[in-house]
Amino acid sequence: MIPLSWYLILSGLLFLIGLLAVLIRRNAIGILMGVELILNAANINLLAFWRYLYGYNGDLRGQVFVIVIFVVAAAEAAVGLAMIISAYRRKNTIVANDIDLLKG
């Protein structure tokens, strides 16, 4: 049997790697991939707690949370990539530091 703490450690480490990607990548698509890793870490946590707390009695709250996070992740990826493509058309770069279209 796998202890709950293993899942928590895995999702914690995955979150930290995602955080590292968000903070250090120069490429905007790399930052977006870091955000997706963070959302996946949250999903592992939610499903692990669902399995260990409510997995036997048919309580669905944890699963509904996971579904909502899936949808939010898909929406976030679509909007983020559209913005990256749009910024690339105008500035011809996707380095996050050089995208300063909103600067007055």
């Binding site: 698509i29 977006l32 991939m33 990826a77 990539l81 493509i85 690339y88 770069t93 996707i94």
Partner: peptide
């Protein structure tokens, strides 16, 4: 989606 945007923005990278 991500692979598509990587390919679309290839020149810049």
């Amino acid at each position: 989606l991500i692979i598509f945007s990587v390919m679309l923005t290839r020149k810049a990278m």
